[in-house]
């Protein structure tokens, strides 16, 4: 369950039959075609994002469908890290992908597509949180409605972890992760879903100092290891 099934694949492929953006006379047409026909440059998610965008511009959407499948978990984690409730986060992720369609022609640097998506998702998430708070204020101003108001708050923590993390080692790791600053937690959750060359653009997208992570372990991961060592957990994997 949860894996890419045939029906879903078929549906996502339907993106191809609908998408009609981009003019075939676009100057980067040839670049895109070369990008799409050469053996896929799959060393990083960022490269696949660039190839997907270039293909999409000329009406070839297979790579985009595949990229949506691959990068949706990354957007989900990004949006959830801003404190957006699950139900609303679903829409914010959709909204982010929709925004990519709207900006497909104007993203000047295809290599920056992944970073663009992450930044867009974060901003949309903040906006959703802001709106949620405004709604909450309006709701609590109604005298009859305060009893249930707490049920409408976006849940700040990712969920009932005690129930799903029965294993002691899992709980230690999760606990250590939760001790890190929020942005470190966000960074590690995101890079854990990407490839090594993507670390730089991910860290840039979430406002971590450039160079703090890349070919090196980086401060967040080093800190996580340090916390685990303090707890006496040495068999990390």
């Amino acid at each position: 369950m949860g894996g890419p099934g045939g029906r879903r694949g078929a549906h996502c492929a339907a993106l191809g039959s609908w998408a009609a953006v981009g003019s075939s006379g676009a100057p980067d047409h040839e670049d895109a075609r070369r990008e799409m026909t050469s053996p896929p440059e799959t060393e990083s998610l960022g490269d696949r994002a660039a190839a997907a965008l270039l293909g999409y511009r000329v009406g070839r959407t297979e790579a985009m469908s595949e990229f949506v499948r691959e990068a949706t978990p990354l957007l989900w984690r990004t949006v959830r890290a801003q404190g957006v409730a699950r139900e609303v986060a679903d829409d914010v992720v959709q909204q982010t992908w929709t925004a990519l369609v709207g900006h497909a022609e104007t993203i000047s640097e295809p290599k920056a597509t992944l970073k663009w998506l992450l930044v867009t998702a974060r901003r949309a998430a903040w906006e959703a949180v802001r709106k949620g708070r405004a709604d909450e204020v309006r709701r609590t101003e109604l005298p009859d409605d305060d009893a249930d108001a707490s049920g409408m708050l976006p849940d700040p923590s990712p969920g009932p972890e005690a129930e799903v993390l029965q294993d002691e080692r899992d709980r230690l790791l999760w606990g250590a992760l939760r001790e890190l600053p929020d942005r470190c937690q966000e960074l590690l959750r995101l890079v854990s879903l990407a490839d090594r060359p993507d670390y730089r653009s991910i860290s840039a997208a979430i406002g971590m100092p450039i160079g703090s992570i890349g070919a090196t372990r980086g401060r967040c991961l080093a800190k996580l290891r340090a916390v685990l060592t303090e707890q006496g957990e040495t068999s990390w994997t």
């Binding site: 549906h11 469908s65 499948r69 978990p73 999760w174 590690l188 990390w236």
Partner: peptide, 26 residues
């Protein structure tokens, strides 16, 4: 270690089923 972070995050806060398809249709 990162792979375990990814795996635990997915267990604690799973990506909703069908979100990819809803996104594609959107």
């Amino acid at each position: 270690l990162l792979a375990r972070v990814a795996e635990l995050s997915e267990r604690v806060d799973p990506v909703p089923e069908g979100l990819v398809e809803r996104s594609c249709f959107a």
